[in-house]
Write a protein that binds this DNA or RNA. Structure first.
Lengths: 119, 119
DNA sequence: GAGCTAGTACGGTAGGCATCGTAGTACGGC
DNA sequence: GCCGTACTACGATGCCTACCGTACTAGCTC
């Protein structure tokens, strides 16, 4: 069944730039798992499959976190074959909240180096 | 009971600078009520009584939000007579996460002006 | 001390969310 | 067509939290 075309069935909803809420972004970033995802995506600087980000949780939990990030407007996602590529919405976030993403990423890095002095 | 001196009984616990966690700060800021508190404190730029920040919730809920902010290291609080003065921990936050507080405050301002064009 | 003001502590409630496992769907390769 | 891979959807669970009202404490003023 599913008379809708197979491709359109796999289109993911994203909030438009104007609908991105600061509170939602902060909440999305306040979870350690999700912050790790964002850090990894920022380091890679390109859209990658979910499985590239190695999380210490089950796959279903991982899916949940990616969904929260997408619905908050922090990342965009699109299907490509069996994989789902995720990438930061840097342009939108920088336009809406200039400096926010960078300061969060820098803070996360410095905090980690504080906790792991010798790497 | 209550052999402890009256003054020491009213000392509030704050996390030291090194113990402030980025995730906790982001979580504290991700609540609309608490973001409003922080914005008000930033505008006033001095320690003020809890009652100065006018929130649309009960007193006990207000106390709860101030406590979350204090325990996350976002604000400091001290008793002064019947009042409890609260102020931003700007120095600590700027030292740990440079630019974070400013970008959050700027983002909150621009988001509000987007929602209320004619204010 | 009496009364006022400012805030706290406590108990309860309802909803949210991080987590899991299991079952299922979409796609690519053989 | 069949199987493996990648991800999703669903339901369950247990914790966390935003919120409230009530009863209480600390300090100020008279």
């Amino acid at each position: 069944m599913s008379s809708q075309t197979a491709s359109s069935a796999r289109v993911l909803e994203h909030p438009p730039r104007e609908a991105i809420q600061l509170e939602a972004v902060l909440h999305a970033l306040s979870d350690p798992m999700r912050l790790q995802i964002v850090r990894t995506l920022a380091d890679l600087d390109e859209a990658v499959a979910c499985s590239v980000v190695d999380l210490a949780v089950s796959k279903s939990t991982s899916t949940h976190h990616f969904r929260v990030l997408r619905e908050a407007g922090v990342i965009h996602q699109c299907y490509q074959g069996t994989a789902k590529l995720s990438g930061l919405r840097r342009d939108d976030l920088d336009a809406l909240f200039p400096g926010l993403l960078d300061s969060v990423l820098a803070g996360a890095r410095s905090q980690q180096s504080r906790r792991e002095p010798a790497g």
